[in-house]
Nucleic acid binder design. Structure first.
Length: 493
RNA sequence: GAGCCGCUAGCUCAGCAGGUAGAGCAUCGGCCUUUUAAGCCGAGGGCCCCGGGUUCGAGCCCCGGGCGGCUCACCA
C-alpha cells in the first residue's frame, strides 16, 4: 500500500463512521446568507461590546483550513471564495452531538456553519457556531498551512490545491478577470462591437506561426487552430461593422517559455478611419485607466523594477531605439553588411540568409527589448516583417506600425491596415517566396477568400493586438506566463 | 532541440566524506472550554523520480531516461 493510501483509508473510515451515524457526508441542503468578506467588512471596526448587540445569525460555507481543538471546544478557520474567518465551536452552543461530529471533521472538509458574531480575547472577529454541518468530506490531506504549496509542478498540475493553499494565486486570477472586464468596458464605451470569429481555420493566417492541425471528420478536411483572428476581423470591417474587437484564444505550435504558452489570450481590435497614432493615444488611455482601477496608481514595481505608466509614453522608431539603447549609429544599420557586423559583434548568430530588416529586428530583440522597462512605443517596423501593414508614406521600406513594450515585454502590436487588395496580394506573394526559399517544406497558403473580401473595399483602419496574459503578468508582478494562465500547458506526467 | 539546476514522508524542508533516512506541519491515540504556526505526552508513515553501473556498502559517485524550473534556440 502506498503511504498516502494509509491517510486516505483513515479518512474513508471516518466517512463510513459518519454514514453509519446516518450523516450524509455529501449533502446539498445548506443555504448561505453571507461571505467571510462581508462579515469582515461590516464588523471589522466594531469593538467587542458593540458586537454583543448584533444578534444576526450568519450562514457561511467553506473549507476548514486549520483547526485548534480542545476537549470540549475548538477554533478553526473557514475559507470561502472571499477569504477566511475564525469559527468557534463550543459544546454548550452546538450541543454534544455536533461536537462529536466535529471530531470526525478534518482540515480540508467543506462545512456550513451558522452562528453569531463576537470578538475573542485576542481581538479576532469570530463566528460562534450554533450549528455545524458537513457539506463534503475530503479524503486527502491538504498542503501545509504555513508554507503553503511551493512545488511549482504540483502548483500547475493541481491548480486547485494552489488556489486553496496560496491566497496570492487567487488574487492573480481575480485581477486577471478584472482586467478583462475593464478592457471590455473601455471598448464598449467607445462603441466597439465584441465579436467571436472562428477558432478553426482552413488556412492559418494573420501571423507567421506554426499552427496546430486537426481534422474534421464529416467534412473530410484538415483544419488549423487559429494563430490570429486578424483576417476575419478585417472581413468584418469590410462588412461595415467599423469598430470590432475580440478577446479570445490563439494557438501557436512553437516552443514554450516564460512568455509563451501554446494557447494564449489576445485582444484584437480594429477601428475604421483611425490611424496607428490614434491607437497609441487610445492604448495609453486604456492601460492607464486599467492601472488606475486595478492598482489605484500609475507607479508599480515589476520584477524589482519601478514602472511608471504616467503618459505620454516615449515614441521611438525602431532605429532610434537601437541607437539609444544599442549604441549603434543609425546610418550603420541601413546597410546590410554593417548591420550584420554589428549584429555579430553583440553576439547575434546569423546564418547569412537574413535580410537587412530581419537583422535590424534581431538586433532590436536582443539588446533593446529587454531594456524597455518603461512603457515605450516603438514605431516604423520594416515592411518586410509586416505583411499586413500599410507602408509609411515617407519611406516605403517601413510601415505605419508600432509595438508597445512594458517591463521588457512586448505587450501590443498595432498598425494601419493595408487595404489595397493588389498590394496585399503582392505582399503575400513576397512572403510566400521568402518562405519557399528558406523552409521548403512549409508552404504558405494564400487566403484568396480574404483577398476577394478586400476587393470589396475595406475602410482605412488601424488595428491592434494586446497580449492579455503578458498584460496580466505586468499588473500582477508575475515572472512567468504560467503564473497568469490558470492551467498552463505541461507535458503529461 | 541544447546547457545549467532540481526531484528525500501527504506538505515544507534537512541529510553527507559513500556507512541503519531525519525534523516541523498533517495523520492516529491520550490530556486540554478563548486558541490562532495553540500546547503537552505517545505512535505510525519512505521504490530517497525511474533504470543500469562502480563499491563490502549508494539518497549521496558514474551512465542512460522521466518530469519540472531557468537560460538559449525557434517564435512578424
Amino acid at each position: 500500500m502506498e503511504p498516502i493510501e494509509e491517510l486516505r483509508q483513515q479518512q474513508l473510515k471516518k466517512l463510513e463512521e459518519l454514514r453509519r451515524q446516518g450523516i450524509d457526508p455529501f449533502p446539498n441542503d445548506f443555504r448561505v446568507n453571507t461571505t467571510t468578506a462581508e462579515i469582515h467588512r461590516r464588523f471589522q471596526d466594531l469593538p467587542a461590546e458593540e458586537l454583543e448587540k448584533v444578534k444576526d445569525c450568519f450562514n457561511l460555507a467553506g473549507r476548514i483550513v486549520s483547526i485548534r481543538s480542545f476537549g470540549k471546544a475548538a477554533f478553526f478557520h473557514l475559507q470561502d471564495r472571499k477569504g477566511k474567518i475564525q469559527v468557534y465551536v463550543k459544546k454548550e452552543f452546538v450541543g454534544e452531538e455536533a461536537l462529536e461530529l466535529f471530531s470526525c471533521l478534518d482540515i480540508g472538509d467543506l462545512v456550513g456553519i451558522s452562528g453569531i458574531i463576537f470578538r475573542t480575547k485576542t481581538g479576532e472577529l469570530t463566528v460562534r457556531a450554533n450549528e455545524i454541518k458537513l457539506l463534503a468530506k475530503s479524503l486527502r490531506p491538504l498542503p501545509e498551512k504555513w508554507h503553503g504549496l511551493r512545488d511549482v509542478e504540483t502548483r500547475y498540475r493541481q491548480r486547485y490545491l494552489d488556489l486553496i493553499a496560496n491566497p496570492s494565486v487567487r488574487e492573480i486570477f481575480y485581477k486577471r478577470t478584472k482586467i478583462i472586464q475593464l478592457l471590455r468596458q473601455f471598448l464598449d464605451k467607445r462603441d466597439f462591437l465584441e465579436v467571436e470569429t472562428p477558432m478553426m481555420h482552413s488556412i492559418p493566417g494573420g501571423a507567421a506561426a506554426r499552427p496546430f492541425k486537426t481534422h474534421h471528420q464529416a467534412l473530410g478536411i484538415d483544419l488549423y487552430l487559429r494563430i490570429a483572428p486578424e483576417l476575419y476581423l478585417k472581413r468584418l470591417l469590410i462588412g461595415g461593422l467599423e469598430r470590432v474587437y475580440e478577446i479570445n484564444r490563439n494557438f501557436r505550435n512553437e516552443g514554450l517559455s516564460t512568455i509563451h504558452n501554446p494557447e494564449f489570450t489576445l485582444l484584437e481590435f480594429y477601428q475604421a478611419y483611425a490611424t496607428y497614432h490614434d491607437l497609441m493615444n487610445l492604448t495609453e488611455e486604456m492601460l492607464t485607466s486599467i492601472a488606475q482601477e486595478v492598482l489605484g496608481e500609475m507607479k508599480f514595481s515589476y520584477q524589482g523594477q519601478e514602472i511608471d505608466l504616467t503618459p505620454p509614453w516615449p515614441r521611438l522608431t525602431l532605429l532610434q531605439a537601437i541607437e539609444n539603447y544599442g549604441k549603434a549609429k543609425a546610418e550603420d544599420l541601413l546597410n546590410k553588411e554593417n548591420a550584420a557586423r554589428f549584429a555579430r559583434k553583440i553576439g547575434l548568430e546569423l546564418s547569412g540568409k537574413e535580410s537587412l530588416a530581419e537583422i535590424q529586428v534581431g538586433i532590436f530583440d536582443m539588446i533593446v527589448e529587454p531594456r524597455l522597462i518603461q512603457p515605450t512605443f516603438v514605431t516604423h517596423y520594416p515592411r518586410e516583417v509586416s505583411p499586413l501593414a500599410r507602408v509609411d508614406e515617407k519611406n516605403p521600406e517601413l510601415t505605419e506600425r508600432f509595438e508597445l513594450y512594458i517591463g521588457g515585454l512586448e505587450i501590443a502590436n498595432a498598425f494601419c491596415e493595408l487595404n489595397d487588395p493588389l498590394e496585399q496580394r503582392e505582399r503575400f506573394n513576397q512572403q510566400q517566396e521568402r518562405r519557399r526559399e528558406f523552409e521548403a517544406d512549409e508552404g504558405l497558403e494564400i487566403d484568396e477568400d480574404f483577398l476577394c473580401a478586400l476587393e470589396y473595399a475595406m475602410p482605412p483602419a488601424a488595428g491592434e493586438g494586446i497580449g492579455i496574459d503578458r498584460l496580466v503578468m505586468i499588473f500582477t508582478d508575475s515572472a512567468s506566463i504560467r503564473e497568469v494562465i490558470i492551467f498552463p500547458q505541461l507535458r503529461p506526467k
